[in-house]
C-alpha cells in the first residue's frame, strides 16, 4: 500500500481575542486546536478519528482538506505538499479530496435543486455539460437513490434527513474522489436512518476502495466503518491502532475511560465509576507534559514533565502514555 496522506508535526493554533493587558505585554494567546500530530493514511484505508468536542478532531479534518491553513508542520497529499497547492493543482486536489458534513439540512444550498447541488463539483472542475447527467446518475446510483428523477428537481427542504445525507454523499462522490472526510455524518440522523448511512459508507469503502477519514465522537459508529482508529485528546493523538484492538484492549487511560463511558443498549452492563474525572482542560493553557494528567488516576511525576510519545504497545497499535512506554514497562 502507498501513503495517500502523510502529516508530520501538523499544528493549528487559532489566535484568541486578547485583553488590553495581553496586547500591551505583546502576548499572543492561542487555542492549540491541533498541537503537533503525526498521521499517515494509506491508500484504501478507512481511519476513524475519535474524540470529544474540543479535542481538535474537526480541525484535523479541515487541515487535511486545506479548508484551513496549518500553523506548522508538513502535510503531503499523494506525495505533494498541500500547503503549496494553488490554482490548477488546488483545483485537482479539490476534486480528489471531498467532505461529508454533519448536518445534511445545512450542507446543500437551499436554493438549489438536488440535480443542481450534485452537479456543483462537476461544474467547478469543468466537466463538459454533456457528461454531467450521466455522472450525476452514476453517483446517485452509488448512494442508492437510483430512481433519481424522483428527486432531481426537488429542493433540499422536500427530502428527509437520510435522503439528503445520501445526496451529500453523492455530491462528494460525483467527482470520483480518492479521499473522503466524513465529519459526524450520522449524528444528526435518527437511529433507524443512521444504520442505512453507515451501511452505505461500508459498502462504498469496499466497492470504490475509497480512502476515508471518519470523524466522530462516537466509537460505536467508527467501529462499523473503520479498520483503524485514532483517539484524540486536546489536540494530540493519544492512541492509534486497529479498531477492534483499540476497543477490546485500549492502552491509553483516556481511551479506556471513553470506552467505559459508552452506554450499551442492554440493561446488563457495567455501571462502575469511570476511571477519569472532570472535563476537558482548557486548550489555551493545557497542562504541561501529558494533557490528561490532571484527570488521570495513574498520573505520576514524569507525566507533568515530559510529553509522552506515541509508541508501539503491540504490532500496529500505539499509545502516548508513560505507563505503557517501554522504559516504564521495563522498570515495572
Amino acid at each position: 500500500m502507498a501513503e495517500l496522506i502523510a502529516a508530520a508535526n501538523l499544528t493549528k493554533h487559532y489566535p484568541t481575542s486578547r485583553t488590553t493587558r495581553q496586547m500591551l505585554r505583546g502576548e499572543r494567546p492561542v487555542v492549540r486546536a491541533v498541537d503537533g500530530i503525526d498521521l499517515v493514511i494509506q491508500r484504501g484505508e478507512s481511519v476513524g478519528l475519535v474524540g470529544e468536542s474540543g479535542s481538535g478532531k474537526t480541525t484535523v479534518g479541515r487541515l487535511l482538506l486545506k479548508l484551513t491553513e496549518a500553523s506548522g508542520g508538513t502535510l503531503n497529499f499523494d506525495g505533494a505538499a498541500v500547503s503549496g497547492l494553488s490554482g490548477d493543482s488546488l483545483r485537482r486536489f479539490r476534486q480528489q479530496a471531498q467532505l461529508v458534513f454533519q448536518n445534511p439540512f445545512d450542507s446543500v444550498n437551499p436554493r438549489f435543486t438536488i440535480r443542481r447541488a450534485v452537479a456543483e463539483p462537476l461544474i467547478n472542475t469543468g466537466v463538459p455539460r454533456a457528461e454531467r447527467d450521466g455522472r450525476i446518475a452514476e453517483a446517485m446510483r452509488l448512494v442508492h437513490l437510483g430512481d433519481f428523477h424522483r428527486y432531481a428537481d426537488k429542493h433540499p427542504s422536500e427530502l428527509s434527513g437520510g435522503q439528503l445525507q445520501r445526496v451529500v454523499l453523492a455530491r462528494a462522490l460525483v467527482g470520483r474522489p480518492s479521499f473522503l472526510v466524513a465529519d459526524e455524518p450520522v449524528s444528526m440522523l435518527d437511529v433507524s436512518v443512521r444504520a442505512g448511512i453507515l451501511n452505505l459508507m461500508r459498502e462504498l469503502r469496499d466497492r470504490l476502495g475509497l480512502t476515508a477519514l471518519y470523524i466522530s465522537h462516537d466509537l460505536t459508529l467508527v467501529r462499523y466503518v473503520c479498520e483503524r482508529t485514532l483517539v484524540m485528546y486536546l489536540g494530540r493523538i493519544v492512541e492509534d491502532g486497529p479498531t477492534s484492538e483499540v476497543i477490546s484492549r485500549p492502552a491509553h487511560p483516556y481511551t479506556q475511560a471513553l470506552i467505559k463511558a459508552v452506554p450499551r443498549p442492554r440493561t446488563d452492563q457495567s455501571r462502575e465509576d469511570l476511571p477519569i474525572s472532570g472535563g476537558l482542560a482548557n486548550a489555551v493553557s493545557p497542562p504541561s507534559g501529558c494533557r490528561l494528567r490532571d484527570r488521570c488516576p495513574y498520573a505520576f511525576a514524569r507525566c507533568a514533565q515530559e510529553v509522552p510519545a506515541l509508541l508501539e504497545v503491540a504490532p500496529g497499535h500505539r499509545a502516548a502514555c508513560h505507563l505503557t512506554s517501554p522504559a516504564n514497562a521495563a522498570a515495572a
Binding site: 479539490r94 450542507s107 446543500v108 437551499p110 467547478n124 472542475t125 467527482g175
Partner: peptide, 17 residues
C-alpha cells in the same frame, strides 16, 4: 457558518463563484 458554503469550497468553487 452554513455548511453549504464550505461544501462549495470543498467542491472546488472559486471565490468569485
Amino acid at each position: 457558518q452554513r455548511q453549504f458554503i464550505e461544501a462549495a469550497r470543498v467542491t472546488g468553487a472559486s471565490h468569485s463563484r
